[in-house]
Design a protein around this nucleic acid. Sequence first.
RNA 1: GUGCCCGUAGCUCAGUUGGAUAGAGCAUCAGCCUUCUAAGCUGAGGGUCACUGGUUCGAACCCAGUCGGGCACGCCA
Length: 562
Amino acid sequence: MKDLLISGIQTALRDIGVNDTREIHIEKPADEKFGDASTNIAMVLAKELKKNPRQIAADIVAKLPFRNDAVERTEIAGAGFINFYFSNAFVTNAVQAILEQGESFGRSSVGAGKKALVEYVSANPTGPLTVGRGRGGVLGDTIANLLDAQGYSVTREYYFNNAGRQMRILGDSVKLRYLELCGEKMDFPDDYYQGNYIKDIAQKIFEQFGDSKKEAAAPYFFKEFAEAEIFESIKQTLHRLGIRHDSFFNELELYRRDCDEPSRNDRVIAELDNLGYIERKDGAIWLKTSLLGKKTVNKETKEEVAVDTVLVKSNGEPSYRLPDIAYHITKYERGFDLMVNVFGADHIDEYPDVLRALKALGYDETRVKVAINQFVTTTVNGEVVKMSTRKGNADLLDALIDDVGADATRFFFMMRSKESHLNFDLELAKKQSSDNPVFYLQYAHARICGIVRVAEDTSGFTAKASEYGLLSVLAAKEELELAKTLLRFPEAIEVAAESLEPQKLINYLNDVAAAFHKFYVECRIVGEEERVMKSRLYLSLATRQVLKNGFKILGISAPEKM
RNA sequence: GUGCCCGUAGCUCAGUUGGAUAGAGCAUCAGCCUUCUAAGCUGAGGGUCACUGGUUCGAACCCAGUCGGGCACGCCA
């Protein structure tokens, strides 16, 4: 529809002598009395044509080429808006198309033939997932679903590191707890992992091996045992939320040297060196981000200074930025056209360095999109609970799912814009289980299922494609309003996918549910004259289809009874 | 101090990328079930869109500055 309007306006513009390919903005007016769609093109042109915008609007309208009957009438209003009113026939025909397309309604082919990689969760296996991680996981999973709906071939990836200092501390923490179980009294350092899960893992080892591991002959035994346990629990938690990954990328891959071949990390250094972006100083290897536009301000002098970034520490170990760069290169090599990274606000300073390096190496860095989500503040009875895996008082994602269920958990994480801090009151979420916002949407779906069941039982209704034409009977205000809302679904997905904001899809589905509930209250279905009843049943079925398709993308269930 | 994010109704937040009278949920108040699910619908009250300037036909949205909150600023990841 939008395309039809735009091409029509372009034709009209040509006819009145405005010849350019400017973007024509079409929007849905806030107030229904201003029609179903409107454009501000006349006001945009007013300045350069030096004419009254209303006059320009009149000129355009006079030349609009709509020969078919999709647009019933066109009006000029306000300062020069051109408002379009769709015909009922156009709207009801489009609803028929929803029923015909079924599960594929809303899907698009704009990403067809393109490969997208979405990286999310990517927590190192040092402990159970926290509530904060859950938000990124849910957002990533849904963004992947959105891109899939846009036609992309999507790979979901989890990037992790099972080496390094953090993992050593993990192994040592488990070992200490284990030795305690073996009856040895010892101090447990503050900077070790304090969580109860450490004790649980130690207990498991003790039950399995008794005190036979006391001497810790294999230095990595505790670390590896703990890693396997924790990874399993992370996957289990993700599974409860319907989050899955197609591939797990181990950071160690980037360090591996096969038969004296340089590692991927080595190659990044060598290539950057060739390009003159490497400097060796103080025993470390630096990326000269000073040449790539990185600046900061000196605290004392308040002058802007260019700064460099360490890639390899003086002890010979790469800093995390080097493997990050190498990792991204594997994404390009694997042929991805779009790479989305979902991570928390604490990584906000990291990715610009990576992008700078990629650009310097000749990669198109605009193919990388970063979706930063702000933190989740968890409160209990109004008091903020701070999260820290190390401290062990973390509010665990699993506990949250136990409390409010998977649907509500997913929904809460997505219902706020990802740039906003999410205020998740655990007590409230528990209590709210009956008037939780997710139920507003699901209730609409369940209601439709109820109506259809009654229609089947009382009048032997079964949906038949040959009867879809009865939708043309629809005429009531609430019916048409609902129908028009349903038609916006493909655009809602597109906007949500492009902005990487699942929340925009939720807002749209809220409109659908609201429009349906209003329709339900005003328009009886079962018991009405047959043609009316059926037209309303088909409208309801189309609504159910849109809700169902939307829920699938959001990863929440579509209950038939509530 | 520097960078990013946020500041909109009593509370939690939307606001279609600069449009028409700024919206929803919760909370408060007043209505709607002998008929398909009242987890719903209708209405009322509630606003200096943090503040000050600027840009223009037009600003919650863009620019500059100020105030307040969060996060990050390491040869940790």
